[in-house]
Design a protein around this nucleic acid. Structure first.
Length: 845
RNA sequence: GCGGGCGUGGUGGAACGGUAGACACAAGCGACUUAAAAUCGCUAGGGCUGAGCCCGUGCGGGUUCGAGUCCCGCCGCCCGCACCA
């Protein structure tokens, strides 16, 4: 009988279903919660999903076999812009579009045979999830975790709508193509910046997280120690006697050559009143998008206001005040001083506008002239830990590190009373207001008499109206004829609902907690949360390293504060793994104008189209519909089976790196699985093979270790080795079946359907999904002799085989007596012999 | 621009600071077959007058008995930059 996943895979899935194998239950076993980042229901699953969920499934099944009670749920991150865009483009309703997509994707996911507890499934757009999230919001409001303030948004003046950063392309609206403007709106915020210090400090405890993610978060939070002080202005309008600035490099104060303020700074607005040049400049400056990227990469522009400030260290020294487009009102004080000798941006700006550039410090031992020469063409920015010579220092010794110089400068300013040392954070409060329809309504009412009033709990949930249209731009909630009309929960007078909905990051900031009790009438059930939290292993893309994970860490703390999670769940994810993308070659030809024409993988054979035209190949590109380099998992599963797709996703590439999908690789994975199937199918007669059983136990040890270390590609390689050993072995009968049963259990987390087949054929009892993980017998792993490579001056020249127990001195004597080593000594006496027991011998001459 | 990461044969990759290239793909050769597919076996980093030697982990330096691995400086690619999810 040939290997036929199309018939066997559904059979085993039905068997698991019937046995309720993946229902998460609280019992006497230790619990293990494995979670993969839930998908956005875009319409179809893609290979990235297959990879992500296969990895999670390997962990879930492995832990299950190791005797854990496993929680492995699935849901849908279902609010968001694409649903509204679809409604705008092809009519229909975002809700229908979303639920239809969920149905399709669930259909597509099921045949993968993932060990998911589908009874816990939910979508964040479910009325119930909305209700619980609104309850959470009200709790957070009461707990003082919510605030309202002004924020800057991208405004499309033609479509009269707020744009997301990704909808701003080169400073223009994606649909209208009109230049985008920055606008101030009053918005709802979560006070995440109150937790800056805690979120930073707690990173140290996240030992199960990749170091790079912890570093990125630390840099994002951006704690800095600096000096805050005021420049006295000369002849400024009344009320602007000083300009407040914050700097992390007060040690460079004597290199200052200008002060720059934001176009939105109150002083800039005041000065603009009588100055058309300034008005025009500010208008132009506001035409950059709001993203930091756009501002930092855009051209740095400035305008001299003509106003001067006095240098705090020398009142006779006056610095010009410029308005600059790269200074944002949202950051710090909205004003800064330029230090061109030691900052790239200030250097560029100074060169562009012909401002003098002076060094504050130079390399050790430099004098003033040498230091000035050093920074003439580019800034000198050594690490703050390097010792440098201050040629224009004003506090502390001449030679010191930048870090020490900052401390001296702060102490000096404080002593003289013109500035204060301040700790600041880069992290800003989390703006959650969205002027969009397809999101969770913010449960708040605006009353003429009472102001902003939380919605009454008994009137929750505030659900979205269904009778909306998307034929016009703008927020359908805002223009709905009746929806916003309500009464004030406090005074009963006519009032208007908040029409902003929540950022979808809110939805994904607590779904992991909801999975512990998805049907509870409160956001969580304390007993369930207490049992299942924390997530033992979280798996998802590195692109979420900062925002989603930081927001989730904040939200967990907010849920602890509001009594929805136990204190121990403040850090919700014990371990994090970030997996790479699935890529595929892009095939293209050129049209008569040289523009690329993309071709689907299935229309390309051996680098040519059906008509023989050769195609250009771009390797390892992110899968994207527009580039036509997308492989549909459904096709693969239909043609080759779920196990093949899973096996291929796990082989070859390390999970944290990108993997390239190749048809040849998929075929090869399928061939291997068919070979394993045949190995199990042939009932070979024969005797024992001690080497085979040793190989099997070595494989147990290796596969266990590699799965634990998330090195699935190496686990796969070990299973290949074991299969090769089985093929070559003459063992038969029960001796062979025993090894096949070991192999079935080792493969079960990765290719669970085939593993059931092998298990059954090899006489395994019950389902392999219920079989305990095999344990390696230490007696079978030991090897008495080792082969030691022998180097002469670091180059490998031979090897010796010695008993493991041999002493270094004996090994040294043996090596020196060895001919193959002697040849390279040329009669010279070894200066030194390095013997690393069990590893290597190096003879130095 | 700023922050983070990655870079090893034709390809994906393996390698506690200790034999670079495990395992696989593609390729070539052979067996089986009327033939092909499938399957099985063998070869395989590059170079040189084959057992041997030299060179080789993006580039340039450094530390070390020994560096793909650690340090410094470049180059290239990827991720993030707060309203994509």
């Amino acid at each position: 009988m040939p290997y036929d996943p199309a018939t066997s895979e559904p059979r085993w899935q039905a068997a698991w279903d019937e046995a309720g194998s993946f229902r998460a239950v609280r019992d006497e076993r230790p619990k293990y919660y494995v979670l993969e980042m839930f998908p956005y229901p875009s319409g179809r699953i893609h290979m990235g999903h297959v990879r992500n969920y296969t990895m999670g499934d390997v962990v879930a099944r492995f832990k299950r076999a190791q005797g854990f009670s496993v929680l492995h749920p699935m849901g849908w991150d279902a609010f968001g812009m694409p649903a509204e865009n679809a409604a705008m483009e092809s009519g229909g309703h975002p809700r229908d579009w979303t639920y239809a997509n969920i149905a399709t994707m669930k259909e597509q996911l099921k045949p993968l045979g993932l060990s998911l507890d589908w009874s816990r499934e939910f979508a964040t757009c479910d009325d119930d999830y909305v209700a619980q999230q609104q309850a959470l919001f009200l709790d957070m409001l009461e707990a003082g975790l919510v605030t309202r303030k002004q924020a800057t948004v991208n405004w499309d003046p033609v479509d009269m709508t707020v744009l997301a950063n990704e909808q701003v392309i080169d400073g223009k609206g994606w649909r209208s193509n009109a230049p985008v403007e920055r606008r101030e709106l009053t918005q709802w915020f979560f006070r995440i910046s109150d937790y800056s210090d805690e979120l930073l400090e707690a990173l140290d405890g996240l030992e199960g997280w990749p170091e790079k993610v912890r570093l990125m978060q630390a840099n994002w939070i951006g704690r800095s120690r600096g000096l805050q002080f005021r420049f006295d202005t000369v002849g400024a309008p009344e009320g602007f006697e000083t300009i407040e600035v914050y700097t992390t490099r007060p040690d460079t104060l004597l290199g200052a050559n200008f002060v720059a303020i934001s176009p939105d700074h109150p002083l800039a607005k005041k000065l603009a009143e009588g100055d058309p040049r300034l008005i025009a400049f500010a208008e132009e400056a506001r035409k950059t998008g709001t993203s930091e990227e756009a501002i930092e990469t855009g051209e740095k522009l400035g305008l001299d206001t003509g106003l001067k400030v006095r240098h705090p260290l020398d009142p006779s020294w006056e610095l010009p005040v410029w308005v600059a487009n790269f200074v944002l009102m949202d950051y710090g004080t909205g004003a800064l001083f330029g230090s061109p000798g030691h900052d790239q941006r200030d250097h560029d700006f100074s060169r562009k506008y012909g401002l003098p550039i002076r060094a504050t410090f130079g390399e050790l031992g430099m004098d003033t002239a040498a230091a000035d020469a050093l920074v003439a063409d580019g800034p000198f920015v050594p690490p703050k830990t390097d010792r440098v010579t201050y040629v224009r220092g004003f506090a502390g010794p001449t030679e010191m590190t930048g870090g020490d110089a900052v401390d001296h400068a702060i102490a000096f300013a404080e002593k003289q009373g013109w500035g204060e040392g301040v700790t600041k954070y880069r992290l800003r409060d989390w703006g959650i207001s969205r002027q969009r329809y397809w999101g969770c309504p913010i449960p708040v009412v605006h009353c003429h008499a009472c102001g902003t009033v939380p919605e009454a709990r008994e009137r929750l949930p505030v659900l979205l109206p269904l009778d909306v249209s998307f034929d016009r731009a703008g927020n359908p909630l805002d223009r709905h004829p009746t929806w916003a009309a309500t009464t004030c929960p406090r005074c009963g007078a006519d009032a208007r609902r908040e029409t902003d909905t929540m950022d979808t990051f809110v939805d994904s900031s607590w779904y992991y907690a909801r999975f512990t009790a998805p049907h509870a009438a409160t956001p969580t059930d304390p007993a369930e949360a207490d049992y299942w939290m924390n997530v033992d292993q979280y798996i998802g893309g590195i692109e979420h390293a900062i925002l989603h994970l930081l927001y989730s860490r904040f939200f967990a703390r907010a849920m602890v504060k509001t009594g929805h999670l136990p204190e121990s769940a403040s850090e919700p994810f014990d371990a994090l793994f970030t997996q790479g993308m699935v890529t595929h070659e892009i095939y293209l030809t050129r049209d008569e104008r040289g523009r690329p024409v993309y071709h689907l993988p299935e229309s390309v054979t051996d680098g040519r189209l059906a008509d023989g035209t050769a195609v250009e190949v771009i390797p390892s590109a992110k899968m994207s519909k527009s580039k036509k380099n997308v492989v549909d998992p459904v096709d693969i599963v239909t043609r080759l089976g779920a196990d093949t797709a899973r096996w291929f996703m796990l082989s070859d590439s390390p999970p944290e790196r990108d993997v390239e999908w190749t048809a040849a690789g998929a075929e090869a994975a399928n061939r291997f699985l068919a070979r394993v199937w045949r190995l199990a199918d042939e009932a070979k007669e024969g005797g024992d093979d001690p080497e085979l059983i040793r190989a099997a136990h070595r494989a147990i040890a290796e596969v266990t270790k590699t799965i634990e270390g998330f090195a699935f590609n190496r686990a796969v390689a070990k299973i290949y080795e074991l299969a090769n050993t089985v093929s070559r072995s003459n063992a038969g009968g029960e001796a062979r079946r025993e090894v096949l049963r070991i192999m079935a259990r080792l493969m079960a987390p990765m290719v669970p359907h085939l593993a059931e087949e092998v298990w059954a054929k090899a006489g395994g009892e019950g389902l392999v999904v219920d079989a305990p993980w095999p344990e390696a017998d230490p007696a079978l792993l030991a090897d008495d002799d080792v082969t030691l490579p022998v180097q002469v001056n670091g180059k490998r020249r031979g090897e010796v085989r010695v008993p493991k127990t041999m002493s270094p001195a004996e090994i040294e004597a043996m090596v020196l007596a060895d001919d193959s080593v002697g040849r390279f000594l040329d009669g010279r006496t070894p200066k030194k012999v390095v013997v690393v027991p069990g590893r290597i011998v190096n003879v130095v001459v």
